[in-house]
Design a protein around this nucleic acid. Sequence first.
DNA 1: CTGTCCAATACTTTCTGACTATGGCCGTTT
DNA 2: AAACGGCCATAGTCAGAAAGTATTGGACAG
Lengths: 323, 323
Amino acid sequence: MSDLVELKKLKNLIAVAEAGNISVAAKRLYLSQPSLSIQIKDLEDVMQVPLLVRDHKGVRATPAAEILITGGRELLRMRDEMIGMARALHRVTFVPMRLGFSSFVDHALYEMVCSIHTSLFPSCEIKPKSGDPVDLLLMLERGEIDAALVTLPASGAGLKAYPFTQSRLVVCMKSNDPLAKLKEITPADFGSKLTIFRDPRQHPQAHDRLIEMLDVVGITGDVASTNKTPHDLQWMVESGTGYALIREGSELQPGLVTRPVAGVTWTVDSALIVAKSTSQRTMPHLVREMRKRLRLQSSLPQSKKPVRSVRPRIGDRILPLFG
Amino acid sequence: MSDLVELKKLKNLIAVAEAGNISVAAKRLYLSQPSLSIQIKDLEDVMQVPLLVRDHKGVRATPAAEILITGGRELLRMRDEMIGMARALHRVTFVPMRLGFSSFVDHALYEMVCSIHTSLFPSCEIKPKSGDPVDLLLMLERGEIDAALVTLPASGAGLKAYPFTQSRLVVCMKSNDPLAKLKEITPADFGSKLTIFRDPRQHPQAHDRLIEMLDVVGITGDVASTNKTPHDLQWMVESGTGYALIREGSELQPGLVTRPVAGVTWTVDSALIVAKSTSQRTMPHLVREMRKRLRLQSSLPQSKKPVRSVRPRIGDRILPLFG
DNA sequence: CTGTCCAATACTTTCTGACTATGGCCGTTT
DNA sequence: AAACGGCCATAGTCAGAAAGTATTGGACAG
């Protein structure tokens, strides 16, 4: 019987009791409400003891559940302690996780990766490395970094991509631009003035794909200004050089606005690229946890930065860009 | 990280360390050797600490593993204690498990069911009830027992069958019978003298099926002697009344031998029959554990079309019989 | 060499566990 | 009252974890 009572279930029971409400606990645990309900039910089934008193406003732990909760906390504490001891004994220090990221990747995503990795492996240091995608991919192949956050497409020998987020591309313009009065604009409206791009050398694959994509709707993509950072790019827009395409939900400098593009759905994928041969064993767990959290809520957990990046709705057909 | 270290894995690690050998531990745990190897490897991966020193004669626990083993034992002990406390608090006593069995079911199977149930639910009493299959099924339908061990075919309203073992049927005869000199005998050899059967009223479905099956090979199945128990049946054979079909591997009285039947593969299934509506919550766990240990699948149709107690051999491997 | 004994790897299958969708219950609001 | 909203339970489906089978590789012992 006891073999059916695993630490994970106890942990979840504790979370439910603390929340006083299965639905809320489920959110905190990045689980669906039914999954959690069933876990509790299984526990009750195995123990043949009711653990929760349900009523219309939530649940309350029974005395038996209190025992499990108190004991469970103790067990979880002891487990952590034990693991710490075992690792200390071997004087194992985690190899730092060397994480590259392009400045064009959403900062919220970067922070999410860091926070999840740290919560999974508290004693594993993260060494961030900013860089251009083309360089990052090279460093990955050489084993100089363990993973990199870049936008797709991205490929390389022995690399594996895990796409995590998808954001719509919108046109960035000055707020006093005539087109800013429109709710949506068409490619024809802005095509000729779309002149501000990120430096093609930073990410040739993505640039080529972008040009190709513009070509489909008849825009030549006159690359008049190339920029190293999103900040530079916005600055160019502000200076009146032209329009730029940026990720929806990006933080905007004052005086700038974005408008969605009618008739097309252009999106950009951000992915974690991992070298299959990496010696950093934490990667699979990181990827798994990222997927778990992004699966459920389509909205990124609120960091201080309001990420209002709109994800395409399921069912809508999306033009396959960067894919 | 610690969330990836579950009690089950610790338990298995302990078993490996105790066995000093993954393969042996796997057998004890009713697991395959690779499954266990992988579990250990996962642990080492997550902890980033080697746990076992492998050499050609087995494995040895590293100091880090010793910590996990000692701590793991403690954790397992505490869990059991905690569960006991929680259950005691509610003064829950297990409802006894009322288990019916036919005397024609292999005693080893009966004992296995009991021992597994007891190891899963030590404090749950088992109330055995011997009886004829026809009565047992009736009692199941009425909810007077929770489960019954009988031979297939067996069906009834709201009953579910979990076949566990399959044994070949062999001809039982006196050791000084002329046919005993043969290694195998054919249906034609013994057909006319096959006169000893179990009482048809005990299990009409199975009896009908048996007669039908004999008919296929041209044996009339002249039921001259009907018997209530396997013992009586062997007694009749010994007294020279005729031949009987019995389960291969049955314990034989002195002076009797069995011979396989050439040209056909007659088998008999023993199954645990459970009322779907039973209040005995231990049943699913019992069934699961039984299946784990026997590695048999229970996807037999148990609809109106009765499960054939006789069927062509699957592949060419016949299950070893109890024992 | 060759056979044996283990553990590791590769590939396949099974089945747990998680999700979506939906229904029922019970208070609160209109 | 009826409609709504919050919450938990159930049903049905599916992906991925875990287990299995078959095979390889390595290290002795004969």
